[in-house]
Nucleic acid binder design. Sequence first.
DNA 1: CGCGCGACTGCTTTTACATCA
DNA 2: CTTGATGTAAAAGCAGTCGCG
Length: 214
Amino acid sequence: MADEHSNTGLGLRLGFGEYVACRERSEKGNNNNNNKAMDCNLDFSFSLCPKEIKSLDDHVKHKQTMVEDQDYHVNINCDYSNNNKNTTSGRKKLRLTKQQSALLEDSFKLHTTLNQSQKQSLAEQLNLKPRQVEVWFQNRRARTKLKQTEVDCEFLKKCCESLSDENKRLKKEVQELQSLKEGGGSQFIQQLPKAAMCPSCCDKIMKKNEAGRY
DNA sequence: CGCGCGACTGCTTTTACATCA
DNA sequence: CTTGATGTAAAAGCAGTCGCG
């Protein structure tokens, strides 16, 4: 079983790139195989590694020289655990350069999803794998959505506060009007603007008032 | 220690195609 | 032969999570 995975993964990944990465994912999902290591172990791409970096030791040396350089980046999207005893986990983190991030951001502003050709050309421009571009866009969409949710939540909170203030104000007004009404009905009616009543009601009240006087 | 973010898994949805009544 | 229903696999997207820096 493990051999099957190894052979298939290595051959396909090397042979067909992005398409196969998706297929691997899909097949793993369909077969319910939870083989976390496969993707990483068999991906020996060093596309962003400077040429002198051949091992993790080199990577560490390189990092020491670049530590103050924000543009430091290295593609270590492979499992060094096979080659290096210092690491216990296969997952290594890539930091995109400022230029790469800027280009991705610009592209994201234009369109939040990419088709195959857009992804491919962007990946070439960035010297990244299409899968990395895809992941970046996925994460970007997710985080944009999260931010938007936070903004919406804040907006709704303010709406709620303002509505509840308005509600209090209106309740107070109703109370004042009720006490006015109880204090003297006709006074209350007279205080109401005529426009607030329909003509027939207005007439009735006026007649009633006149009748009351005699 | 908490945060940002690249990478991953598992799941759902969409799409294309095949088969059958 | 055409058509609608159904099944299946591939592809893509998303939510949730991990873990490095």
